[in-house]
Amino acid sequence: MRKVIRKWFWVWQFDKEEKWLNEMAARGLALSSVGFARYEFEEAEPGEYTCRLELLAQYPNHPESEQYIRFLEETGVEQVGSYMRWVYFRKRRALGEFDLYSDNASRLHHLRRIMMLLLPLLIFNAYIGCYNLFLYMQNHFAVSLVCALLSLTIAILLGIGMLLLERKRKRLQTEAQLFE
């Protein structure tokens, strides 16, 4: 039996998303495919699988990513799906613990990759927003104001996300000064 759940997570909530997927797995629903804000589960033994998600440096069909995914598969990991550069994995508990990162350096590396995904979008939206605001002050067209407010709202949202990620990065960075 399959079960589809529509649920939204912001990019910076990837930890929360992963935790939720593992709570589902603990209840006997193993992730079997993903889409835009859409998760498909299949029935499994409660706690049969561990789920992990990762933002890859390249799209999943890029040769470098394919090589990486093949490497993971050799350790018993299954790729259940992907959305853009995000890839979703699962592994049977019986095959051992499943983590993608075991030191702070690689956790930081992944976190920076996520921040670099958001940064250009933040700059772009902030720029478009300010530009439209400037236009509105010149021409008083309602459409300019709407564009400005829309872009600035997105920029603020992304800004909040970046701040949350930055806090997490700082915590990890401090930890990394003491421990690998």
Binding site: L72, E74, L100, Y101, S102, S106
Partner: peptide
């Protein structure tokens, strides 16, 4: 191979060091 390294490192360190696949 990759999985062999993970197993050998775990046994060399008596189970203390578990390398994650991505790392």
């Amino acid at each position: 191979h990759g999985y062999g390294i993970m197993q050998k490192v775990e046994s060399l360190s008596h189970g203390r060091v578990r390398l994650a696949a991505g790392t």
